[in-house]
């Protein structure tokens, strides 16, 4: 890692670079650029969403311990590739059964 002069904004360390910065939830870390390393690779499954049956209740966003569910302007969930650990909580708690735990890498919004 290179030294950052104290008066410069914090630079991303190369190993900490997130593949999808746009997927970051709004947070002070995102603004600062001091990101944690991705948790991609922790999971073997991840959520596959059926937006046709989703009621936009937001419970998946509420219960994800990793802030890996982002809600769109319209209230529909998307999954953050960097943070989802595949725990399955969102799928277990979705009242509409709109979430299925599919293979990691599968399209989350088929």
């Amino acid at each position: 890692m290179t030294d950052t002069p104290p008066d410069q904004p914090c630079q991303l360390a190369p190993f900490a670079r997130s593949r999808q910065i746009d997927d970051w939830p709004p947070s002070p870390q995102r603004n600062s650029g001091a990101l944690a390393t991705s948790n991609r690779g922790w999971r073997i499954r991840w959520p596959v969403l059926d937006l046709a049956t989703c009621s936009r209740c937001g419970l998946c966003f509420l219960y994800c311990p990793d802030a890996a569910i982002l809600l769109s302007q319209e209230g529909y969930p998307t999954v953050a590739d960097d943070w989802c650990k595949g725990c399955g909580l969102c799928a277990a708690e979705c009242p509409k059964d709109s979430i299925r735990m599919g293979e990691d890498g599968e399209d989350t919004q088929p």
Partner: peptide
């Protein structure tokens, strides 16, 4: 309430095990 939970995240990228209850307490 659960209906208007603020959007900003202050506990993200942490290394707790998947499904960890403690990390949900900190995040909320």
């Amino acid at each position: 309430t659960i209906k208007n939970l603020p959007e900003p995240e202050y506990f993200v990228g942490h290394k707790a095990c998947g499904g960890c209850g403690g990390s949900l307490v900190v995040r909320w």
